[in-house]
Design a protein around this nucleic acid. Structure first.
Length: 486
RNA sequence: GGUCCCAUCGUCUAGCGGUUAGGACACCGGCCUCUCACGUCGGUAACGCGGGUUCAAUUCCCGCUGGGAUCGCCA
């Protein structure tokens, strides 16, 4: 096989958002490049001018960077094999097409799309099950070339077969008699997928093509093209497909499928990647991997061949594992990622170290950075946002004496540590012959506005004395107002 | 229909001839407990079917069934 370091690529079409299935393909390629010291190339396949947009390309680049899947060659970073957008490579395809024609491996076809469509429909009308194949009208045309637009077709062999050894699927044999003279270049001179991909992979020195199994059907015709061009055939690795829970193609109607949606929900990039890498790949019983471990452990041999179904709950659980662990997600990273979500809630200008101090309390409760911001919310307001139901249930008249007693107790305490607060609180309960159950919830609602928070004393200690007292006062006034009104 | 591919709990998977078929998520119970979580203990749950090969098949081979991909001047 090819000498030197592997060169792999991710070649998305900028025809929409970045799909998580595409991310998995990018990830596997990226991991292989990192593991082997190879090169990860990003190529934009924008030959579908109807649907490709610069905006979509920008989104793809931005999301890949957010994921941490940086590329060694490609748009914005350059490289020796550019340009990296197919529409900027038209002269290169032209050159290769001329080679093919000169070698008799391709020919000009003057049949129009309309003619072919009509033939296709006529056949379908006669026999709905029949498959239409290009009849070869222009294959051996002689005489002067008509003055009409033409496409370039591949002269596909009708005998023999193509065999390749897939790194995931093993040996795959496909007879050539099922191939047809596929169009290589449109009438407008823009190449189609198979030609563009092959020429680019040749000229960019790609040694291993790893892509989704939906492309497996393209591999034999592509190999035929490599052979016709006299170019070395790269290795191939096809990845099983990630389907929707209902077994259909994973699309928008099944929920979130674009990376952006996960980013906006506060799913950590490493969590998403960890979920995706475990989809179709395994390393014994291990489930949670730091990225640096993945780079080391990844291999094609441990890829599975069976398609799978996407499971949002599993993704959430794996992301949560990363958020819970300060080894996996250090405080600083956690903070950097949570701050935007706090700002989205209208919170800003707070002390980063103050947020850091609360982190241990919320890590085990927040499945996403958005959850974290929610759990952090009442720590950084003068008064919490009071949940209506919680107020109605716990800030009621018969709890007022308890709250007042707690307020007076707290006012007298100087050591506002969680430990001391708990001890003194216990004394108060004993004195009043109360159960903590009777008092904890009203106090919790008074200081946080909600019924579910981390341990009461930890929360109190972090909110600090003046604000705790202010909130208890506010809660008492709410009770007074409601009982007065009622 | 042609071609290609696949097949272990509901889901992601371990297994690479001999295992009480393991783990994780989800689900159901118990414990912990000031709420919510975390944690922890336990439970339900799988080798699609039929033939071979073998002393022995989840594992190897064939067929069937089922599922998926693709059959475009989309990628």
């Amino acid at each position: 096989m090819a000498q030197g370091k592997p060169r792999v690529r991710f070649a998305p079409s900028p025809t929409g958002y970045l799909h998580i299935g595409g991310v998995r393909t990018a990830l596997f390629n990226w991991l292989w490049a990192r593991k082997t010291g190879g090169t990860f190339v990003l190529r934009i396949e924008d030959t579908d001018q109807e649907r490709s947009t610069p905006e979509n390309e920008a989104i793809i680049l931005r999301e890949l960077r957010w994921l941490g899947l940086g590329w060694d060659e490609g748009p914005e970073v350059g490289g020796e094999h550019g340009p990296y957008r197919q529409m900027e490579r038209l002269p290169i395809y032209q050159e290769f097409v001329e080679k093919l024609i000169a070698a008799g491996a391709a020919y000009r076809c003057y049949c129009t799309k309309e003619e072919l469509d009509a033939q296709r429909e006529a056949l379908k009308a006669r026999d709905p099950k029949a498959q239409f194949r290009y009849p070869g009208t222009c294959r051996d045309r002689t005489g002067p070339a008509p003055d009409r637009p033409f496409v370039i077709r591949f002269r596909a062999p009708s005998s023999g077969s193509v065999t390749y050894r897939d790194l995931v699927f093993g040996e795959v044999v496909t007879p050539n008699n099922t191939q047809q003279d596929a169009v290589l270049v449109r009438a407008d001179g823009v190449p189609l997928y198979n030609l563009g991909a092959v020429v680019d992979d040749i000229t960019m020195g790609i040694t291993l093509v790893a892509r989704g199994r939906d492309h497996m059907i393209n591999t034999p015709p592509q190999i035929l093209l490599y052979q016709a061009l006299g170019a070395p055939v790269p290795q191939f690795a096809h990845l099983p497909m990630m389907l929707a829970p209902d077994g259909q193609k994973l699309s928008k109607r099944h929920g979130a499928v674009s990376v952006g949606e996960y980013r906006e929900r506060g799913i950590p990039a490493v969590g998403l990647l960890n979920y995706l890498v475990r989809f179709g790949w395994s390393f014994g019983d291990e489930e949670i991997f730091p990225m640096q471990d993945l780079v080391q452990k990844f291999s094609w041999e441990n890829c599975s061949k069976a398609d799978g179904k996407f499971d949002a709950k599993k993704l959430a659980a794996i992301a949560f594992e990363h958020l819970k662990s300060s080894a996996l997600t250090p405080d600083d990273a956690y903070l950097d990622n949570t701050l935007p979500f706090l700002e989205k809630r209208g919170l800003s200008g707070f002390d980063r170290e103050a947020v850091r101090a609360v982190l241990p309390l919320i890590r085990e409760r927040a499945q996403t950075y958005a959850d974290a911001a929610d759990a952090l919310d009442y720590f950084f307001r003068d008064l919490p946002v009071y949940d209506e139901k919680a107020v109605k249930k716990f800030l009621v008249a018969d709890k007022a004496p308890h709250l007042r007693a707690v307020r007076d107790l707290f006012a007298s305490i100087d050591d506002f540590s969680a430990k001391n607060l708990e001890a003194r609180f216990g004394e108060l309960l004993a004195e009043k012959k109360l159960e903590i159950k009777d008092v904890a919830q009203p106090v919790r609602v008074a200081i946080s506005g909600r019924t579910a928070t981390p341990g009461l004393f930890d929360v109190l200690a972090l909110i600090d004395k003046p604000r705790v007292l202010a909130r208890l006062d506010h809660a008492l006034s709410l009770i007074a107002a409601s009982s007065g009104a009622g």
